[in-house]
């Protein structure tokens, strides 16, 4: 089974640092441990989601601005 990066917090998931900037990462991108793959907004505070394992992004499992739960998978690493 592919490895996954999960949301550390409940909140709203964002794939980009601000609405008019590009995504942090796209499908097919390589990630290293510590790379920021998105943000989770919890009560108006933005928290970076960092990769806790290295790999290549197979697919995003949550869309931009989608509500997520703590522990919910955000990314499948191919």
């Amino acid at each position: 089974m592919a490895e996954q990066i999960v949301s550390p917090l409940p909140g709203t998931f964002y794939r980009k640092p601000s609405p008019d900037e590009p995504n942090f990462k796209n499908e097919g991108d390589a990630v290293a441990v510590g790379d920021v793959i998105g943000l989770v907004e919890v009560m108006k505070t933005f928290n970076e989601v960092k990769a806790d394992k290295a790999g290549t992004i197979g697919s995003f499992l949550a869309d931009n601005e989608e509500p997520v739960m703590a522990g919910q998978p955000l990314v499948d690493l191919g």
Binding site: L9, G11, T12, E41, V42, M43, K44
Partner: peptide, 8 residues
């Protein structure tokens, strides 16, 4: 349960 989506 306080939702995480709004202010604190």
């Amino acid at each position: 349960t306080i939702p995480p989506f709004y202010d604190s």
